[in-house]
């Protein structure tokens, strides 16, 4: 049995090249904290620029109200600005949900058979290409100032886009799924709950986010032309009284509403499509 020659080992170790010592200092700011700081800067940059522009009087009140004036508008508006906000939110959310559901159902229906697809697709494509905003006067004549009219307007504004996108998702079945259904002699159009809906949910989020923006525009235009309460109505009446600070406040609230709904949509969707995030 060989014994270790410690002296020889120590001599050999002395001859080995000395490696540079690693930098033991931890990073001062972690990567996630950097991202949070950048996000905060992005959120605060706009208001900061606004405050600077008004503080140094670079832009006149005719074009850009002061931040204080916009905050004062909260107290000036009657009824309370939050009531207007609530009405607009309700019309938007109700119309968006109904429109998305209707669009998905229409898309599943036209995918049932090629005959139904050929029969309905030309009409759907035509209606989809009509700008929803252009149909506002038509709905005002039909429904007047009623809430139903505004909700149905949002539904028609987004349902056809969602329907076409849904149909496309169901047509573009991955090869491995087509082979799977054929191997077990199953018609994929009959697997609505087990297959069609999950596949639709996987692919439809970008269309829905875009449709949300469309829905906001449609709601505001409908309120501009035919409402007695809501942010769009408030913008219209403020224009008549040159209350630019109120208009600004409404626009800010619309931006907040759109952002909150977009975040809620994205987070809710990731829960719905739970298998993709794991």
């Amino acid at each position: 049995m060989q014994t270790l020659n410690h002296k020889k080992i120590a001599q050999e170790e002395e001859q080995l090249p000395v490696l540079a010592k690693p930098n033991k200092k931890a990073p001062r700011i972690s990567a996630s904290l950097k991202l949070k700081i950048l996000t905060a800067i992005g959120c605060l940059a706009g208001p900061a620029i606004w405050i600077c522009l008004k503080h140094f009087d670079i832009v006149s009140d005719r074009y850009l109200p002061a931040p204080i004036a916009v905050l004062d508008a909260f107290r000036e508006v009657e009824p309370n600005i939050l009531v207007h906000f609530a009405y607009t939110s309700f019309r938007l959310v109700a119309g968006f949900i109904a429109g998305a559901v209707a669009g998905i159902m229409i898309g599943i229906f036209i995918n049932r058979s090629e005959s139904i697809n050929r029969l309905l697709s030309p009409s759907l494509q035509s209606m989809r290409s009509i700008p929803a905003i252009a149909t506002v006067p038509f709905f005002l004549l039909w429904f007047g100032f009623s809430e139903w009219g505004k909700i149905i307007l949002v539904v028609t504004g987004i349902a056809f886009n969602v329907a076409i996108a849904t149909h496309q998702v169901l047509r573009d079945i991955p090869e491995k799924d087509r082979i799977l259904f054929k191997s077990f002699d199953i018609d994929p159009t009959t697997f609505v709950v087990q297959y069609s809906l999950p596949r639709i949910f996987e692919a439809l989020l970008p269309t829905l986010r875009f449709s949300l923006t469309t829905a906001v525009g449609v709601v505001i235009v409908s309120e501009l032309l035919g409402a007695q309460i809501g942010l769009g109505y408030l913008i219209q009446t403020s224009r008549s009284t040159f209350s630019i600070h109120v208009i600004f406040l409404c626009m800010l609230l619309l931006g907040v509403l759109n952002s909150l709904l977009d975040i809620a949509l994205t987070k809710g969707w990731s829960r719905l499509v739970y298998w993709k995030s794991n």
């Binding site: 491995k176 799924d177 082979i179 799977l180 054929k182 191997s183 077990f184 087990q194 297959y195 999950p198 739970y274 298998w275």
Partner: peptide, 12 residues
């Protein structure tokens, strides 16, 4: 019946 190399179980 054809079973491919790719996994074809429906994940949900």
């Amino acid at each position: 019946c054809l079973v491919l190399q790719e996994d074809s179980l429906l994940p949900w």
